[in-house]
Amino acid sequence: MDIQTNEEHELMANWGNRRDPLLSIVCLTYNHADFIRETLEGFLRQKTDFPFEVIVHDDASTDNTAAIIREYAARYPSVIKPIYQRENQYRLGVPFSTRLFAQASGRYIAYCEGDDYWTDPRKLQLQVDFLEKHRDYVMTYHDAFMFNSLGVVRTPHLTGKYRKDATALQLQKARPVSTLTVCFRNLLKELPAELHGVEVLDICWWSLLGAHGKGKFIEEIKPAAYRVHEGGIFSMRSSKQRIQMTTHAYYNLARYYQRIGNQSLYEYFMVQVFAHVLASISPVSKIQALGQVFQNISINLLRRLTPGV
């Protein structure tokens, strides 16, 4: 049995006699030695009246990330539960983030990668309190600000119509949500086969969760910090690459909804695929593509109107 440290005792002071986690924080990290301390401190500053655990997955980092995680795991042995990979799972195409959800003990999951961090110590308490009282909601989220190594800040992360609650259908349509801010019910134990190999998994999570309820935007939680840096898997990709990654996710969501017989969502995501493909090609190619589509539609319409011809 782990011996409780003074730091851990202070963290657990408001948990009473309960030790089974009500919430699991899932953190994926890779070569985040310059950032992971700030991430873990953001977790450990959380003031809650319920127990939580921190599952930190190090994907075979080649820097000092694993050593820093070991340091924190020694200080908080009952709370921080590290997983160290010997071979990089991302390069193998393993969707390890979703697999971690299945290993999480909590009724709820909060997600934050090892290069981002939370700023509000009330975050988890406010989100769990809401979900405990509102069974028709499957997830909560709040705002974040973006910043880079030069200290340049762009805020807020969510603007306009996205700074609001989301209906279940909007979630199913993969409505944008600031991923490092989410807290959701632990319902995603595995991915449908169609989504294996998808890189932009978070929009797939929201779509799958939408089958179980609505999303709540909690404005009073202070914005979390989304770091843009050279090692970022998504943020530092070119605009064209990001469009391609998102298009791939939409196409596979379309395949999933086609298989389960949801024609409306299948058609919605196929339209998104078409729109993203158009956005990623040159203006001349775009005109040619639209012309070809119009020609195909005209031919099919003519065949319907002139049977036997």
Rank of each mutant, 00 (worst) to 15 (best):
E190M: 05
A144W: 08
L209P: 02
F217S: 09
V138W: 13
D136K: 04
V200P: 04
E230V: 03
Y137A: 12
H196T: 09
V152D: 15
L209S: 08
M146N: 13
L201G: 11
L150E: 15
A224V: 04
K133S: 06
A225I: 10
C204G: 08
V138H: 10
H142N: 04
G232Y: 13
L171I: 03
K164Q: 13
S235E: 12
V198N: 00
D202R: 03
V228E: 14
V198G: 03
D165W: 01
L171V: 00
M236N: 11
I203W: 04
K173F: 04
Q170K: 15
F147L: 10
Y226Q: 15
H157N: 12
L195K: 05
Y141S: 06
F234S: 00
F217P: 13
W206I: 03
E190T: 09
I221D: 13
H212Q: 10
R227Y: 15
V198M: 02
G232T: 15
N186D: 09
E194I: 00
C204P: 00
A193V: 10
H196E: 06
K189C: 11
P156D: 07
L169A: 14
I221Q: 13
V182Y: 02
K161A: 13
H142W: 09
K164S: 13
G232E: 11
Y137K: 03
I221A: 08
Y226T: 12
I218L: 08
Y137N: 08
G215R: 03
E220I: 11
H196F: 04
E230C: 00
N148T: 12
H196P: 00
E194T: 00
H134R: 02
T179L: 05
L209E: 05
L180V: 12
L169V: 15
A166F: 13
F145W: 11
A166Y: 14
V228Q: 14
S149L: 12
E230H: 07
K164H: 13
A168V: 01
L208I: 08
Q172N: 01
R163H: 00
K133T: 05
K161Y: 09
T167K: 08
W205N: 06
E220L: 10
K222C: 12
S207H: 06
P223S: 02
T181N: 07
N148K: 05
